[in-house]
């Protein structure tokens, strides 16, 4: 008698990477780069995605890792990833030569609640590289500006040289009914913006908790403080969404690497409503 530990996936092809050609590598900051990846075969383009989803990117001979998609979801034909170089695989990705080939699986996971929030105000709170998975949602809202109410983007980074997408952040501030505030943990004398943790920006914005949905992505400790701040301002947990990050391997809920209690970040997330993921945050090795 043989024991089946894990039922086979209904579609094993999700485990097989498609070839992706690195079409462009753009330096964003001293350690963060944006890659545009296309299918080498125009007849079979890479699959589209929903804002908030991620792909598994495979650098042949180095390793595979989950990377959030940071491009415009309505721009078809290529997928855009913003990657911070922190280890061997991310370093290999950001130093990819244009024209080289990587493996791409996905997209996987849940997305930001952009259908459910039509007509509502949106508060986007991002920290560090956490702006990357939120950027597709911002692109979507700006493309469909009339479908949403007020858009407020709060973004915190370590220092001015770590701020991502600075030109875009500045441009978004000129879109009607849109407010973008950035802050850094410390800055030199040439930095004339805000200094302080991202929650200190709340005092400079006007939000109505009864008609606003919050979407947050950043380090877990930052998200925890943002959630506390939002709740103190009367936000119901059901209107707060978070994107969680865990070590993922299979991306389809089989291997258990990304398990948080009863949840698998890869298939039940990475985007969760706060009331669902709250009890499991900041708890590792579950």
């Amino acid at each position: 008698m043989s024991a089946v530990l894990c039922p086979p996936s209904a579609d094993v092809s999700v485990m097989r990477p498609a070839a992706g050609r690195v079409a462009r590598v753009e330096k964003e900051t001293h350690d963060t780069f944006t890659l545009r990846v296309e299918s080498p075969d125009e007849a079979s383009p890479l699959a589209g995605f929903e804002p908030g989803q991620f792909s598994m990117l495979y650098v042949y001979g180095v390793g595979e890792l989950p990377i959030s998609i940071s491009g415009d979801p309505e721009e078809r034909g290529s997928l855009v990833y913003t990657i911070r170089s922190v280890g061997a695989a991310t370093h290999a990705l950001v130093t990819s030569k244009e024209g080289s080939t990587i493996g791409v699986r996905g997209p996987f996971g849940t997305s930001w609640p952009l259908r459910e929030t039509r007509g509502r105000d949106l508060l986007v709170v991002a920290g560090g590289i956490g702006l990357a998975p939120l950027r597709p949602a911002i692109f979507h809202v700006l493309r469909h500006r009339g479908d949403y109410g007020r858009l407020v983007v709060l973004y915190g980074a370590r220092s001015p040289k770590d701020l991502l997408f600075r030109k875009q952040l500045a441009a978004w501030n000129y879109v009607p009914d849109t407010q973008v505030l950035t802050t850094v943990d410390y800055g030199g004398l040439s930095w004339r913006g805000y200094v302080g943790v991202v929650t200190t920006l709340f005092r400079y914005i006007r939000i109505r908790p009864d008609r606003t949905t919050a979407m947050i992505c950043g380090p877990e400790v930052m998200m925890r403080f943002v959630v506390t701040e939002l709740k103190s301002r009367g936000f119901p947990a059901e209107q707060i969404y978070l994107s969680a990050e865990r070590n993922m391997k299979c991306a389809i809920g089989h291997c258990g690497h990304c398990q948080m209690g009863p949840l698998f970040v890869c298939k039940d997330g990475p985007v969760f409503p706060c009331h669902r993921i709250g009890p499991w945050m900041d708890r590792y090795e579950l």
Binding site: G128, V197, P219, V221
Partner: peptide
């Protein structure tokens, strides 16, 4: 919170 240096690459979560 600021001194946690939470955006540093070495900081978990």
């Amino acid at each position: 919170v600021q001194v946690l240096d939470m955006y540093s690459p070495g900081v978990k979560g």
